[in-house]
Design a protein around this nucleic acid. Sequence first.
DNA 1: CGTCAGTTTGACTGGAATCAAAACCTGTGG
DNA 2: CCACAGGTTTTGATTCCAGTCAAACTGACG
Lengths: 246, 246
Amino acid sequence: MKASESAIQPFLERLMCRSSLDNDDQQKVLSLPAQIILVESNKDLIPDKEFTSHSCLVVSGISARYVQSKEGHRQIAALHIRGDMPDLSSLLLPHRSSGLQTITPSTIAFIPHNALHELTKSPAIAEAFWRDTMVDAAISTQWIVNLGQRDAPARIAHLICELATRYQKSHDGNEFEFALPLTQQHIADAVGISVVHANRAVQMLKNHGLMLIANRQVQVLDWRLLCRAADFDPTYLYLSCTSSGQ
Amino acid sequence: MKASESAIQPFLERLMCRSSLDNDDQQKVLSLPAQIILVESNKDLIPDKEFTSHSCLVVSGISARYVQSKEGHRQIAALHIRGDMPDLSSLLLPHRSSGLQTITPSTIAFIPHNALHELTKSPAIAEAFWRDTMVDAAISTQWIVNLGQRDAPARIAHLICELATRYQKSHDGNEFEFALPLTQQHIADAVGISVVHANRAVQMLKNHGLMLIANRQVQVLDWRLLCRAADFDPTYLYLSCTSSGQ
DNA sequence: CGTCAGTTTGACTGGAATCAAAACCTGTGG
DNA sequence: CCACAGGTTTTGATTCCAGTCAAACTGACG
């Protein structure tokens, strides 16, 4: 297997979680040309100018889609992990409306737009891409609810529930842990509160025996209760990977 | 022109704002079968059960995509106006993750999924649909920023700016007005604050000479300033309709 | 003229931002 | 091995924003 194939593998797996592709289409995805680059933390992945010619794919690490408001505040609008294609939208929407930055050291694959465009000539692949875009939109909707309606602890709980599920860690029972290299500043920027307040909310979750965050690890102490506190329902993520596709 | 064609016309216009379709494809869109229904206000448009077989299209009026949180609070996640297809996502994502309700008396066209699916066999149309999904996602991203970072008056200002632009009213100079039949409760639910607070924020905008809302009309007093206050940049809406296509 | 939905106002309270400073790591180089 | 610098987490004190409750007001409509 070529280096680029193994880099694209997680992306294909993601697609296959939600859509079904025949062998031919799978092969086409895997043979996408990709330039694989190691990127350190806090580096911008897409330039500010219009008309990028590549989309990038997270192979490892975490990246954040963010918007910087006029007063210097930053809002993280999405977090992207292994297998995600954060700026697929640049393929059809040339104006960049949000920035993209690595949070941890990451390996990123850059894929030329024309190759992606070529790929979408296969209807099944086009549909799979479209479906993934829809799931991203569904996630955004949930973030809107999170920001608009829940208090600080619930917002953080929901974020953690979402990430645990996307990392597929939520099936390991009611008590488990997983690596999550976010600082409290990142969490604060994602759920729209200040760092100080994020800290207190995290402690609140700890004191209630729901979860704790320490040295880049999240330890879920009571998954059931955490989901309840977060009002979390995983269906919107469409990640029932066990069954192939819908 | 058949009744269903004229109902679908605004939808086609919307698509044409962002994508270019040849005559053949345009004709295909227009001849979509549609069941046109008049709906009163505050009626749910999609059933709670899974596997709807139709998507709906707003021909006139306003509908809200919303999520009801456990404690009974409601968050409006998107507003849909003439030409929008609010639940296009049900075509590829069978589980409904948000509700859809008319805000005003509306005329809605219901279009069977299989007809839409058939339509996407034309690559240009599929791409146009996909692009529209991406714009919806971009709008959601802006709402996240709105809820996460701005204070109440700015949130409302941003909402108004967005709607004015989507109604294409923002080209009528620096001072103009347009119909917007939202109650302050709706505004509050959309920007994540209480009605009382929404009221005070609206008055603040009035006192600063930016805009005023009265009898289902928004009167923009200083578009330039309003945009500044809202930190509004319309590019994410991709509505430069004057030029045809992207 | 009463009703009802929507808007406006006031008084009160709690939550969250801000500012500031201290404690805590973790990797670095002396 | 220690000291140190950096980023991160924690804590406290203060201020202010925004939610809640409750009540009055406005218009439209039957």
